[in-house]
Nucleic acid binder design. Sequence first.
DNA 1: CGAGTGTCAATACAAATGTATATATGATTG
DNA 2: CAATCATATATACATTTGTATTGACACTCG
Lengths: 212, 212
Amino acid sequence: MTAVKAGVDGKRKAQITAQDLMDAAVDLLESHRSVSSLSLREIARAVGIAPNTFYRHFRDVDELAVALIDQAGRSLRGVIREARQRLSLERSAIRTSVEAFMEQVESEDRYVHILLREMSIGSEAFREAVERELSFFEDELRDELERITQATGTATLEPALVAKAITRLVFAMGASADGKSEAQRREITEQTIVMTKMIMEGAQSLARKQQA
Amino acid sequence: MTAVKAGVDGKRKAQITAQDLMDAAVDLLESHRSVSSLSLREIARAVGIAPNTFYRHFRDVDELAVALIDQAGRSLRGVIREARQRLSLERSAIRTSVEAFMEQVESEDRYVHILLREMSIGSEAFREAVERELSFFEDELRDELERITQATGTATLEPALVAKAITRLVFAMGASADGKSEAQRREITEQTIVMTKMIMEGAQSLARKQQA
DNA sequence: CGAGTGTCAATACAAATGTATATATGATTG
DNA sequence: CAATCATATATACATTTGTATTGACACTCG
């Protein structure tokens, strides 16, 4: 939208973008700071612009925070979708998905951490953005569960509820994996996989009992 | 420890206690503000003391935050224990416990909200305090599960993992119940109960399959 | 009674914050 | 080229922040 083509000569001042501001904000949140403790000036300082220039890109720090969540969600959903497409050849759908999720959490994409951490904090707009991402997940997962039910013929009790349980649990476990070591994260991943299987198995077992 | 006996005459300035500061802080966190966005002066203003007097009770706002978490955890554990003691006469252990938890979350005790919300945010000491409370929960729940296993003879797969899954899930659901209406909270409670039952059922079902 | 001690307020100050106003620079377009 | 526009800076100001210093008041104990 507001993208500016680089000038003919390469000597340009390197055009600050909204993305630059977001990256700087994420840097500042590296350690366990809350988004709400970020100051406009601090972010501006980090990217090397005058405080007022911030307003060219966002009205608020809050607005930047919402953009952060959107980005985190988008990136996370992309990874999960990709994992799902790899599913057909693989063994366990659960394992593949959970591992994809945790992979995304553990590295490279520091945006996701913020989503996981600040689920219940921040402005109204912020929390709504987080809720939106959770819903996306739940919906996609529910569809997937219903597809499995159709395909395998094994009934699942209340797919929507199962999807919600798994989503919340996986997110919570992901959040707890945050500062941990590689080994610890691997253990958390394995735990999460077993937990997810328990929920799935429980939902199917209850469905069987209910049928009888 | 530092409690001061009231003077002979009742005209005293009403002795500010650490608890007063904590209560004031909780008031300020009413809406979804982060603890890390609280200022020392703000809290002092709320209780009507001079900024410097704050130091008589806490070294930091961080130290106050940790005290907050401890209090929330203590109060929460008390309620769960009480619920557990009522269990023998009741029907479903799961329902009783989850309802007790949600009851505590939804009203009166605004301290618990903070614990639920800021699980992944704040200083090191803060997060450690939260982790401590989670561990307490998991341990007590695991003991309970093992006792059930002993009593009923129905095996449960990995009680520690089940306890962890249930704890994280219930906490996550509790956190999501925060700003909601009475009706919505009731629905969340019901959902949480079913989710918990799924986990239990799944763990038992998997144990049966593994035995075979 | 008088000295000590714990609890508070008053004043002060440097630093940091959000934002208003005005200005400069390079790109775009007539 | 001149005008316009988006982008960024500079300066400024009133607030707010954490904390240092100082002193007042009430209570306790010898």
